[in-house]
Design a protein around this nucleic acid. Structure first.
Lengths: 137, 137
DNA sequence: GACCTAAACGATAGTGATTATCATTACCGA
DNA sequence: TCGGTAATGATAATCACTATCGTTTAGGTC
């Protein structure tokens, strides 16, 4: 049995990710972690994040051309990346249903699904009304 | 109207991506492009790939912790990343249906969907039968 | 066909996120 | 309390990708 030690760093990072609603990046977790534990290093944050992801406690949300976000796995949902502000938001969706539907149609064994939408968040959509978005090109 | 010039580089990269069935990376497209046009540079390949993606002729498939793959957009489908070999495979799926379903349930405007499954490809699944995968850990 | 202009290119340096390395620290079972 | 070792902190390295910039060349005009 592989030994797993509990450390203050691990507890802190876990707490920060699970309590955050903002889909933090490794860097922003590092920043908030440092305010509680100034000696923590960025490498440790990455190491712990990956360990937690591997253990299934959190998910990594890779964003094309931007640093990955991390999120708790408390309920099945997808993500939306705002094309204007780059923010990441939760989208209610039965991901497992999609996984099952695709898996039954498919020659391969599918274990997990990562669903990310591109879109525009409500804040950006609001400011878009005034702007001349549709006039471009 | 923005001027768009046709160049041999652009034609070559387009041809390579659209004719490939292997979801090539930018690097592997660069490699095959060089065999036809040795002077082409990696930066140019990236530039053209992004232009084609922006034009909707191809899609970029970002893979967590690995270089992006590129694929033609001829029909709606998702992708599966094999957890053993890292290969990328097509998965038949009505992505637009998922997009619509999620969009109707959602406070945001969703424009596009990127669906990637984690799984095991047929080749790796075969070799797994003989191996002692479940004994690990 | 020669000329012109700017889009596109090639070469290469730079960037930013993430990972590897390694000496040091500190869990935790004995 | 002690010892083995997992985990950490500091930092160097990597890797995919992007920016820069001088040069080339597509493609319209004369």
């Amino acid at each position: 049995m592989k030994e797993k030690r509990n450390t203050v760093q691990k507890e802190l990072v876990r707490k920060l990710v699970l309590s955050s609603k903002a889909h933090p990046t490794a860097e922003s977790i590092y920043a908030s972690a440092r305010s509680e534990l100034p000696s923590i290093s960025l490498g440790t944050v990455y190491r712990i994040l990956h360990a937690l992801a591997e253990a299934g406690e959190i998910v990594e949300v890779p964003v094309s051309g931007a640093p990955s976000r991390f999120d708790s796995t408390n309920c099945s949902h997808a993500h939306m990346v705002c094309e204007k502000c780059g923010g990441v938001f939760d989208v209610p969706l039965d991901v497992d249903a999609v996984l099952k539907a695709a898996g039954s149609d498919c020659a391969y064994r599918l274990d997990s699904a990562h669903i990310t939408f591109g879109g525009v968040c409500d804040k950006c959509a609001e400011s878009e009304i005034c702007g001349s978005e549709s006039a471009v090109n």
